[in-house]
Amino acid sequence: MSTIRDSMDSLRARLLPGAGGLLGWWGRALASWLPHRWRSLLGLTQDRLLLSQQEDQGVLAWQSTEGVRELARLPLPLEAGDLDGLLGKRMAGLPRWLLLPADAVLRRPLVLPAAAADRLRDVVRFEIDRQTPFGADDVCYDASLRQRREDGQLEVDLIVIPRARFDAALAPLGGLASELAGVDVAALQGTPLGVNLLAPAERRIRQAPMRGWHLILASLALVAVVFAAWTILDNRRNAADEFETALRTRTEQARRVAAQRQQLVDLVEGMNALERTRAQRPTAVEVLDELSRRLPDGTHLEKMSIEGDRLVVIGLSQEASSLVAKLQGSPLWRSPALSGALQPDQTRRRDRFTLTAQLVGTTAPPTPGTGDQNGKRAD
Rank of each mutant, 00 (worst) to 15 (best):
L34Q: 08
S219M: 09
E55S: 11
A115H: 12
N235M: 14
R73N: 01
Q53Y: 02
R250V: 07
L323G: 10
L311P: 02
I4D: 09
W26P: 01
R293I: 03
A320Y: 03
A224S: 12
T65G: 15
R236S: 09
C140H: 04
L154M: 08
E269Q: 12
E290G: 06
W213T: 14
M304N: 13
A228L: 09
D157T: 07
A364P: 06
P17W: 04
G174E: 08
A228S: 10
R12K: 11
A229P: 06
G340K: 02
L98S: 05
R39Q: 09
T245K: 15
R39H: 00
Q57V: 01
G93A: 05
P366D: 07
E244C: 14
D84H: 10
N235L: 14
G175K: 06
D84N: 07
Q207D: 10
F166R: 09
V183L: 05
Q318P: 10
L355P: 02
Y141T: 08
R12S: 11
A208E: 01
A143P: 04
P95F: 04
R148V: 14
D266Q: 13
A364C: 05
I128K: 12
L76G: 05
D47N: 08
D103W: 01
Q260G: 15
T356D: 14
W230T: 10
Q57S: 06
A102K: 03
L311N: 01
A337M: 07
A13C: 05
R125K: 12
A199N: 05
L16E: 13
R121P: 00
A168P: 09
L267D: 14
G361E: 06
V313W: 08
Q57E: 06
R236Q: 14
I4Y: 11
R255T: 13
S339G: 05
L120G: 15
L154E: 02
Q153H: 06
Q318N: 10
S321N: 11
F227P: 03
E66Y: 03
H300G: 08
V139K: 03
L87A: 08
D118A: 12
K303N: 11
G174P: 01
E79G: 15
G375W: 00
S339R: 09
L323T: 09
S40N: 14
G21R: 03
G27L: 03
G182I: 00
G81E: 15
R146I: 07
H214Q: 12
L188K: 09
P368N: 02
P75N: 04
I216E: 01
E70K: 15
T191G: 05
R96H: 06
L197F: 04
R28L: 05
T231R: 07
E202K: 13
L233V: 07
G135K: 12
L34M: 13
L74R: 00
D241A: 15
L50H: 03
P101H: 09
R90D: 13
D151Q: 13
R278P: 00
G270A: 10
R12F: 09
A80R: 14
I4S: 07
R90G: 08
G340R: 02
